[in-house]
Amino acid sequence: MTQTAARRTYSKRSLHGQVAHDLGRRIIGGSYPEGSLLPNEEELSTELDVSRTALREAIKVLTAKGLIVSRPKIGTKVRPRGDWNMLDPDVLEWTIQTSDLTVFSRKLIEMRDMIEPAAAGLAARNHRPEQAVELVEAYRAMDASQTHQDWSAADLRFHQAMLSATGNELVGALGTLIETALITSFDYSARHARKPKESLILHRDVLDAILSRDPAAATQAMEVLLTDAREAIDRIAAAQAGS
């Protein structure tokens, strides 16, 4: 995860944020299963060595993220996983930290499959000149990268630029919203790639189609790119299973 992405998460900016971070990881990691009650306030504040005020503020943070719900005379209960705000940057970070990265990356690609091909088509139709420049510069940064970290950062920049170029601010915001997930997945794949920059030519196909304002070609090129990404994750999983 990039330092930028880490700084964007709310949970580590204050004492109660650190408490929220600790509890959030425990909940998502399964230490407090769905439907279970958290220890009472006195026990939890003692265990975490924080004031009740800090704990209460942390509980508010986790409640807002959909992880828990507090009821008078009952206590604080972990909500079902389906209620969690999985696109919240903190929740994404905690999920990544407590999950099998292969499984997580596959789920992320499933989501990207539903969004990015259509987004590439929109970008081909709607991009402005300055957005075309940003796409080209992101691609050049990928081509010039010397480390997998540089590659991952440039790859993230390329996909965020593509989403922004759709002309739909809701789609454009998605790239920032799931930045932590994307950079983690890109870095994971890059570290295990058979050769550096192996998907560069596929990104070039997406770029060329967008710049040519060919929505059908851009959609198809993005589908091919995501298929390659999925196959790369499958190769990583197979290699790890055989090691």
Rank of each mutant, 00 (worst) to 15 (best):
M86E: 01
A229N: 12
A5W: 14
T147R: 01
L44A: 08
T227R: 15
F104H: 06
Y32M: 02
V103F: 05
E57L: 12
A217R: 11
R204V: 03
S31A: 10
V91N: 04
K65I: 11
T176H: 11
V91F: 06
E179D: 10
K195D: 05
E57Y: 11
L101N: 08
A238M: 07
D90R: 13
P72I: 13
Q146A: 13
G66Q: 12
R230P: 07
R112Y: 10
S11F: 12
R230I: 10
D234L: 15
A241P: 08
K73Y: 09
E41I: 15
Y139S: 00
I74D: 08
H16D: 06
T166A: 00
E42P: 03
T9R: 13
D187G: 15
L163Y: 14
A181Q: 11
L200E: 01
I178R: 07
A20R: 01
R13V: 03
G35P: 09
S105D: 01
R71C: 06
A132I: 04
E116A: 12
M114Q: 15
A154D: 02
Q18L: 14
L23T: 03
V224Q: 13
I59F: 06
A138G: 04
D88R: 07
P196G: 02
E57K: 10
L207P: 03
L225W: 02
G66N: 09
S185E: 14
R106C: 01
R230C: 13
D187C: 10
R81T: 05
A193W: 03
I115V: 15
A239Y: 01
I28Y: 03
E198P: 09
D22T: 13
R25D: 03
E47Q: 14
S212V: 02
D228N: 15
M142I: 06
A241D: 10
A124K: 01
E116L: 09
D150Q: 14
E134N: 14
L174Q: 05
Q160D: 12
I183L: 12
K195L: 07
F104Y: 10
G172K: 03
E47L: 14
L200S: 02
L23G: 02
L207I: 08
E42M: 07
K107G: 08
K77R: 15
S145H: 00
A138L: 05
M142N: 03
G17L: 02
H148W: 09
A165Y: 01
K65D: 11
Q131P: 04
K60D: 04
T166P: 00
